[in-house]
Lab assay of single mutants.
Amino acid sequence: EVYKVKIKIERVLPNGEKVEEEITIEVEGMSEEELLALARELAAEPGVRIKEIEIEKLPP
């Protein structure tokens, strides 16, 4: 199964400015739980906050 994972994050820059970013990846052969863990890892940097995680199962 192939999933499209869209992660919206908010990053706080050293000057205090907040910037929103969106990361989209396609992943194959992982469960939804593994995808959530991967998304959290991607956003685990200091000053980064996850705003939204969207997981979509793509048709075969």
Rank of each mutant, 00 (worst) to 15 (best):
E1A: 11
E1I: 08
E1V: 13
E1Y: 09
E1L: 10
E1D: 10
E1F: 04
E1S: 12
E1G: 10
E1N: 08
E1K: 04
V2T: 11
V2Q: 08
V2Y: 13
Y3D: 09
Y3M: 10
Y3E: 04
Y3S: 15
Y3K: 15
Y3A: 15
Y3Q: 11
K4I: 07
K4P: 03
K4A: 07
K4H: 11
K4V: 07
K4C: 03
V5E: 00
V5Q: 00
V5M: 14
K6Y: 07
K6E: 02
I7S: 00
I7Y: 02
K8W: 14
K8A: 03
K8I: 12
K8E: 01
I9D: 00
I9F: 08
I9S: 01
I9Q: 01
E10G: 02
E10F: 04
E10W: 04
E10L: 03
E10A: 02
E10Y: 05
E10S: 06
E10Q: 07
R11A: 01
R11W: 06
R11M: 02
R11Y: 04
V12R: 08
V12L: 10
V12D: 07
L13H: 06
L13W: 05
L13Y: 12
L13P: 01
P14C: 06
P14R: 04
P14K: 06
P14M: 07
P14V: 05
P14N: 08
P14G: 09
N15A: 02
N15G: 11
N15K: 01
G16Q: 02
G16P: 00
G16V: 00
G16S: 02
G16M: 04
G16F: 02
G16R: 02
G16I: 00
G16W: 02
E17D: 11
E17T: 15
E17W: 05
K18C: 08
K18F: 08
K18V: 09
K18D: 02
K18T: 13
K18G: 05
V19G: 02
E20L: 10
E21Y: 15
E21H: 10
E21T: 08
E21C: 11
E21P: 01
E21K: 03
E21R: 09
E22F: 06
E22R: 05
I23D: 00
I23A: 01
I23P: 00
I23S: 01
T24L: 11
T24N: 05
T24Q: 06
I25F: 11
I25E: 01
I25H: 02
I25W: 13
I25P: 00
I25A: 02
I25R: 04
I25D: 00
I25V: 07
E26R: 09
E26I: 12
E26M: 11
E26P: 01
E26S: 15
E26T: 10
V27W: 09
V27L: 11
V27G: 07
V27Y: 08
E28G: 10
E28R: 01
E28H: 05
E28T: 14
E28V: 06
E28N: 12
G29I: 04
G29A: 13
M30R: 04
M30C: 03
M30G: 10
M30T: 03
M30K: 07
S31H: 06
S31V: 08
S31W: 10
S31E: 05
S31T: 08
S31K: 11
E32W: 08
E32Q: 09
E33Y: 08
E33T: 13
E33N: 13
E33V: 13
E34I: 15
E34R: 07
E34F: 14
E34S: 08
E34D: 08
L35M: 13
L35F: 11
L35K: 01
L35S: 09
L35W: 08
L35G: 13
L35C: 05
L35H: 03
L36P: 03
L36I: 10
L36D: 06
L36Y: 14
A37G: 14
A37S: 07
A37F: 15
A37D: 11
L38V: 07
L38N: 03
L38T: 07
A39H: 03
A39G: 05
R40C: 03
R40G: 11
R40M: 15
E41K: 12
E41F: 14
E41A: 15
E41T: 15
E41N: 14
E41W: 08
L42C: 05
L42P: 01
L42D: 00
A43W: 07
A43T: 13
A43M: 14
A43R: 04
A43Y: 11
A43I: 14
A43S: 13
A44H: 09
E45V: 09
E45N: 09
E45I: 14
E45W: 14
E45H: 12
P46G: 09
P46W: 12
P46I: 13
P46H: 15
P46R: 15
G47N: 09
G47H: 11
G47R: 04
G47L: 02
G47Y: 01
G47W: 01
G47Q: 03
G47E: 06
G47V: 02
V48M: 09
V48F: 07
V48G: 04
V48I: 11
V48P: 00
V48E: 01
R49T: 06
R49W: 04
R49M: 07
R49F: 04
R49A: 10
R49G: 03
R49L: 09
R49N: 14
I50D: 00
I50M: 02
I50T: 01
I50Y: 01
K51H: 04
K51S: 07
K51R: 13
K51V: 15
E52I: 09
E52Y: 11
E52A: 12
E52L: 10
E52D: 15
E52W: 15
E52H: 14
I53W: 03
I53V: 08
E54A: 11
E54S: 14
E54N: 15
E54F: 12
E54M: 15
E54Q: 06
E54G: 08
E54K: 10
I55K: 03
I55A: 02
E56L: 09
E56S: 13
E56M: 12
E56T: 14
E56R: 13
E56V: 12
K57I: 12
K57Y: 12
K57C: 04
K57D: 03
K57F: 15
L58S: 10
L58C: 04
L58F: 10
L58E: 05
L58K: 11
L58V: 07
L58G: 11
L58Q: 06
P59S: 15
P59K: 14
P59V: 15
P59E: 10
P59W: 14
P60G: 11
P60E: 08
P60D: 09
